[in-house]
Nucleic acid binder design. Structure first.
Lengths: 240, 240
DNA sequence: TGTACATCAGTGAACGCGCGTTCACTGATGTAC
DNA sequence: TGTACATCAGTGAACGCGCGTTCACTGATGTAC
């Protein structure tokens, strides 16, 4: 356990400074040594204060951890929103959101685990749910834009859930099973995953009725689709 | 903590009976009361033996939990293999595998969490990795069959990873965020997710070059694809 | 067929640990008069 | 300008808990002779 030099006491009215410090230290500890290492004793020691001081700013340990999660949700939401603003094309903007999401998760695996893989603890998780919903709202907005453009058909919320699930699956499987035979070019794999989710959602939203065995006709139809898409984007490249 | 009546001592040579009992009880406890409730004391008490008896069959607590995970992996692998055997069409068989996977996860959320969302513990996880790889092998086989049929293009292992990730995302997001605005008809959502993964992988594996903004041409192309697929399966329905 | 004995399947009591949390207390500091 | 005082930002020591794990021991039972 790293013990910091004793923290100089905050001025009167500046008590909240310690709160920010505790949050920062707790996330550091989480990243460096894992969830089990985040104890009140360790957090307080590294922040340079005594253990009971934590109770001046958080009701209990769960509240501290929840606050860390809240801060991470905020970072993720901002990142997604920023990524989406890069392109005016709704389908492309959705793709950029997915990429940003996955890359954030892989860059911060321990934090991602905190957001998505924590064991369920009964109690006040309202604040975290609100933060997660806020983040989810950005995905719904992206899905809605694609529905408006005619790329997707159906309910934007349901579509967004499917898209999120696809990206989440990619991140969380990579985090949970790093020993699986992942391709050497991880970035290409991520790009493919996002493409799969986007194209898959677009096609799936048009399929009606029960699924049928179609393996004998699919290759021809799909080759034609890919050909037309390539031709269409080549045209876009030509000066008008 | 449930305390069972004292277990009658096994006959000589039948010591392994307790091992099976401990495994069964540990999984029960996990399902009924969560991961935190699986303590050696609780397991032993419910099995009707003293706590140190567990050490006669497992090196330590981690070994007990690992053995539970191993058993669950086995169930899942058998389920997937059985589901796939139902259809001769490779694309349809892959769909059935995905459905079976997701439904297993939703039917056994606590066990699924054990397999996929446990915190990483440094140490002997070789046996579990082997069990997971065995399970994964069934998915690779399904992807390979689709490549052979021309439905997918590319490396079956990489495709299988993407498909697994998509299904895993669906299960694990449902488990992790039950408060999200999930559709009322969950089964339809699951079917759509599997369709999305299958169709998405098929289309994605044909796309080459960098992604382009194509929102203005996608709807028309996709409508045509859906139309052709529907027509093709209607033909299948006609008596030849 | 009897009996000594090795082995197997457990038991009871205890150890030490680190954790979250509580409680009574301290001492600096801004403020009212 | 001095000073009493309320308040704020912490501290030190301790409590109780449940956990995984260890150790010396027990008693039934199959087997060799």
């Amino acid at each position: 356990m790293t013990v910091a030099p004793r923290r100089t006491r905050a001025r009167r009215g500046d008590g909240e400074l310690l709160r920010a410090d505790l949050l920062r230290v707790a996330e550091q500890l989480l990243v460096e040594a894992g969830e089990a290492a985040v104890t009140l004793r360790a957090v307080a020691a590294r922040a340079g204060v005594s253990t009971p001081s934590v109770y001046l700013h958080f009701a209990d340990k769960a509240a501290l951890v929840d606050a860390v999660a809240l801060s991470v949700w905020g970072q993720l939401a901002r990142l997604i929103a920023t990524a989406a603003a890069t392109s005016p094309d709704p389908f492309e903007a959705l793709r950029l959101r997915g990429l940003a999401y996955i890359r954030f998760g892989l860059a911060h695996p321990v934090q991602y685990r905190l957001l998505m893989m924590r064991s369920p603890v009964p109690g006040a998780e309202d604040a975290e749910l609100a933060a997660a919903s806020d983040c989810f709202g950005h995905v719904v907005a992206g899905a809605r834009a694609c529905v408006d453009a005619g790329v997707f058909l159906g309910d934007p919320t349901a579509l967004a859930l499917g898209l999120w699930a696809a990206c989440h699956g990619c991140v969380s499987l990579l985090i949970a099973k790093p020993q699986f035979p992942w391709p050497a070019d991880l970035d290409a794999f991520i790009e493919d995953t996002v493409r799969m989710a986007g194209m898959g959602t677009a096609v799936m939203s048009r399929l009606v009725g029960p699924p049928r065995p179609v393996s004998h006709v699919l290759p021809g139809q799909l080759d034609a689709l890919a050909h037309h898409l390539a031709a269409a984007s080549d045209q876009d490249q030509e000066p008008t």
